[in-house]
Computed example of a mutant assay.
Amino acid sequence: MHIHAETPQIIDRGALAKMVMQLMDHWDLPTEDQLALLGLASSNRSALGRYRQGEPISQNVDQYARVSHLLGIHKNLRLLFPRNKEHLYSWMKTRNKAFENRTPVEVVKELGFMGLLMVRSYLDRARGI
């Protein structure tokens, strides 16, 4: 992510797109789950390919917020599991008692943006923030 010193609000949305797609690859999520986490219609599979190529993330507030939360989730996981890459990358697909034995991905798929906030908040609390 490139933030220019003279204009801190400017963020390279193309770099964000590539980062979030790389994250989806690390998490090894099927296309359907990737679309759900990004809040995209299941018919919008082509958007994933465009994001992989660096097409900027939409300026749509929901889409931008989702990407921000997904990257925040990853940051939390990296800090919680610094020496366990396997757990770091499998956590989103692992059943969790905190989510009524659902996976974090299932929570987001079922509850949409609110589910994403629940997962992020859970990890924030786990880190003590």
Rank of each mutant, 00 (worst) to 15 (best):
K18Y: 00
L23H: 03
S121C: 05
M21H: 01
G39E: 07
G128L: 08
D12M: 06
H69G: 04
K97L: 13
H4F: 12
L116P: 06
M118V: 10
T7Q: 12
M92Q: 07
K97C: 01
H26M: 02
D33H: 11
L116V: 12
H4K: 14
F113G: 07
M92G: 13
S42W: 01
E55F: 06
L37A: 03
Q59Y: 05
G112F: 07
E86L: 06
V20P: 03
A65P: 01
A65T: 10
L117K: 15
F113Y: 15
I11A: 09
H4R: 14
L48Y: 03
V108F: 04
E100H: 09
L116D: 11
V61L: 11
Y64E: 07
L35C: 05
H74E: 15
G128W: 07
T7D: 14
F99D: 05
A5N: 13
P82M: 07
Y51P: 03
D124R: 09
V108K: 03
M24E: 04
R127K: 10
S42K: 10
R66C: 03
L123R: 08
L111Q: 15
P56L: 05
Q63A: 15
N44V: 01
T7L: 08
E86S: 13
N84Y: 05
G128I: 04
W91H: 08
R95A: 15
L16T: 04
A15C: 04
R13P: 01
L79D: 15
P56Q: 04
G128Y: 10
M19V: 05
L48V: 09
D62N: 09
